[in-house]
Write a protein that binds this DNA or RNA. Structure first.
Lengths: 220, 220
DNA sequence: CGCAGCTCTGAGGCGTTTCTGAGATCTCCG
DNA sequence: CGGAGATCTCAGAAACGCCTCAGAGCTGCG
């Protein structure tokens, strides 16, 4: 997955610098604008995954900037930052087209969590669990191989693989897998059978057997 | 545009009642669940534009409910309500899959503004929805193929395709489509039939089946 | 009225999934 | 080495999900 691109429109250069570093540490690719005019220009011409807009900006106010972007059909997710924290201010910000509104001062952790939430919306939950060099698409119940090839899994196959992949270092006892993935009444060997199915689809090394203890996720 | 549908999962019946009225006044169509189990069932089978989930719920905790919905490919926007307002609580809620997190007590105005922000659609007001290489003309109920050819859709066909196209990356469960496009009393297989009609008119790949989960818009 | 198109029902069919169980194979330890 | 227990492999039965489509009722129009 490529880095998420963020446009940060903030006139306080000190704060902008700190946020820029914070975002870079989290793996975002950040561009900055220090006034509304410049923010408008970049917002219209560049493509970003999220815009962070300070409400108070020189030249062009943050909310006005936001409105102009929205009327120009820019639908990028927008998080508005502001020192104005009254309910009426927040309502005004949201109704101007913001997707979220965070009041200064804020904790870095919360900003990051809200950014993650905004970024998630466009992926439509296409989150993946790492699976060695491949990945497990949790939304579509598919394994995505490094070259982009997709292998669809049946419901049970998916549940089993997900359980294994959720704790990749753990060794999962048969009984635990049977309880988690299958119904109470199923036979003792159901886990073995489904491990066999997974290995048919994904290759012999997809699941590792730890004799006497259980199974562990392997390399796909 | 039809009314927005909201599922309210809140165990405090007094608050639920008040919110229900508030939402009704604002033109939302609201359903309520008073515990997590019921919320899970409704969330999985119904079709809503936004879910409002209280964090503290009997039977099944709010965040656990949210996680279960997310693992079942429910990508509906979720607003979590909670008395727990620490930064760590908010981060936990957002990372569990919430799109927004509002701390009790809150002002009605802010809740409504945040709901509006969540309910806003990307291409609201547009006259066409993109449909792979083609487009869906919302005014004339026609699909416009790349070469300009037009295919007229019946009312139901159009509603179904529009629902799919509105969130092109999401997987739409059968039950959700049935609730949204067809009357309450229609049979279980009505969605299948109309998907079949769409495929007759637009080609086999117009709608993609994700076995066990639902349908997704494909390439036309 | 008669026709055409739309909506919905329900039945039949087909490929997939799930689960069982049994034989083959492996591994460890005495 | 040999046996016991663990694991693997796989065929088959039943259930399920999904697709297809004919037909009945309805609506609107000429």
């Amino acid at each position: 997955m490529a880095k998420s691109r963020v446009l940060l429109v903030e006139d306080d250069r000190e704060l902008a610098g700190m946020l820029g570093e914070l975002l870079a540490d989290e793996g975002y690719e950040t561009e900055a604008a220090h006034d509304g005019q410049r923010g408008l220009h970049l917002g219209l011409t560049g493509h970003y995954d999220v815009l962070i807009i300070d409400r108070r900006l020189p030249v062009l106010d943050g909310l006005e900037l936001l409105r102009r972007l929205r009327t120009r059909a820019v639908t990028t997710r927008v998080l508005v930052l502001s020192a104005l924290g009254e309910v009426a201010d927040r309502v005004a910000g949201l109704d101007a087209g913001a997707d979220d509104y965070l009041v200064k001062p804020f904790e870095a952790e919360e900003l990051l969590a809200r950014l993650r939430a905004l970024g998630r919306r466009d992926l439509e939950g296409a989150e993946c669990l790492p699976l060695g060099t491949a990945a497990l698409d949790l939304l579509r119940h598919e394994v995505v191989l490094p070259r982009g090839e997709r292998i669809t899994l049946s419901g049970r196959e998916f549940e089993l693989l997900r359980t294994l992949a959720q704790r990749p270092k753990a060794i999962h006892p048969r009984a635990a897998l049977r309880t988690r993935v299958f119904a109470e009444s199923t036979g003792e060997s159901i886990v073995d059978t489904y491990v066999y199915y997974l290995r048919l689809k994904l290759g012999r090394d997809a699941v590792r057997t730890v004799r006497g203890l259980g199974y562990q996720i392997g390399v796909v």
